[in-house]
Structures are given as C-alpha cells and as structure tokens.
Amino acid sequence: MEDFKILEIKTSVFADNSIQAGKLREELKDKKVLLLNLMSSPGAGKTTTLTRTINALKDRLTIGVMEADIDSDVDARTILKTGAKTIQLHTGGMCHLDAEMTRQGLEGLDTDGLDLVILENVGNLVCPAEFDTGAVKNVMILSVPEGDDKPLKYPLMFSICDVILINKMDVMPYFDFDMEKCKANIRLRNPNAIVIPISAQKNEGIKEWTDWLENAVNSWCE
C-alpha cells in the first residue's frame, strides 16, 4: 500500500492572491497612490465614465489608467485622447485581473508622480469580485438597461464595492427600472455602499462622483 500524507488545510482557493493583494496595497500606501478598481458588465459605461472622470479631475490630480481587455486596445486609444497616461493590459483570455497581473501593470505604467490610477477591469460581474486586485477602492457601474435586480443575482460584486454608480439615467423612461427598489436591493448586500446615479453620456451626476473620488485620494495620500 502506498503511503499518503494528508495535509488538512482548509484554506481559501484565493488565499495566495489575497496575500499578494494585501502587499500591493501596503506598497501603494507608501507611494501615496490610490488604485481604483472599476468593474461592470460589458458595455455598462466604464470607458465613457472614465473619460468624464479624467476630464473633471485632471487639473487637480495626476491620473494614470490601466485598461484591461481580453484582446483589444480600443478602450486604451479612447482614454489616451484625454491626455492621461494609459497602458493596455491583455489578460490572454482571462476574464479578470489578479493581484500579480495588476502589479505588473502598475510597473509598466510607472506610478511615479501619479496620485490616482484607475483600472478598467474586464467586463463581468463574477471573477473580478473574487480576485482582490490590491485596489484601495472598488467601484462598480450598473447601467439602467441591466435591471434593478442585479444586486440579488451578483451578491459578491455588490458586497465588495465602496461606490455603485447607476449609469445611463437618461434612458430611464424606456426601461422598467425602479431606483428605490434597486437601492433597497443594494442595501441588502451592502449597507455601506454609496449609490450615485449618473449619465456618463450626458455628463450628469459626475460631480458628486468625482467629489467623492477626490476626497478618497486626498485622505489616502495624507
């Protein structure tokens, strides 16, 4: 009979990633750089919101952007037009970024002199919630056409976010989206989340969001 040694460990599958992410956050604290992880379903408006955010804050903060995409560089080209320092990260088929890939991205971007780095994560609501990237703040965008019951279907994503932006408010009249119900559903998953309705396309509601963000950067970099 073969002799097996059994290690009973009871560790999360994601343990190693969480350790790496924790280290990265400490380094970012030392460097006084706030890393923001921006997540959503495909097409909810991450790139459009990012453009508005950079334009609102670029006179007061030095911003860098990491665009994660499975294979293309369309979004990075869009962001480059704002003048922000931008890098494209290809995940090679992976539907999320982990802490190690984020670290490599930050090295490639070079964070010297930056106050804020925004990571546009791969568009989906499952894996980006499981994998801590090392970000200091997590923000997600839920767009009106996706429906007010998304917080019930993707509980983990909603529970890890500091801010939830409800985007595409301009199309509200055409959808059966109940804002109060949506807020109640979010509260079930995350009582502390800040909910801000915006229309990235019409540039509405952006100030409340960028005020929050500027505040977060200032307290992190103190």
Binding site: L7, T11, V13, M94, D98, N124, C127
Partner: peptide
C-alpha cells in the same frame, strides 16, 4: 471562462503551501 482562472489561482496557493511543508508531489 471563470473556472480556469480560479484554478490557476488555486495552483499558486497550493504551490506555496507545499513548499512550506516540504512536499514535492501531490496525489490528490
């Protein structure tokens, strides 16, 4: 493919654990 990414991460976690325990081969 969510599951593949999850497993890749798990392989790293286990790599660290078995190194600490001085184990070279994992049966199951």
């Amino acid at each position: 493919m969510h599951e593949l990414g999850v497993l890749n991460s798990m392989v790293h976690t286990i790599e660290r654990i078995v190194k600490e325990q001085n184990v070279t081969a994992v049966h199951k």
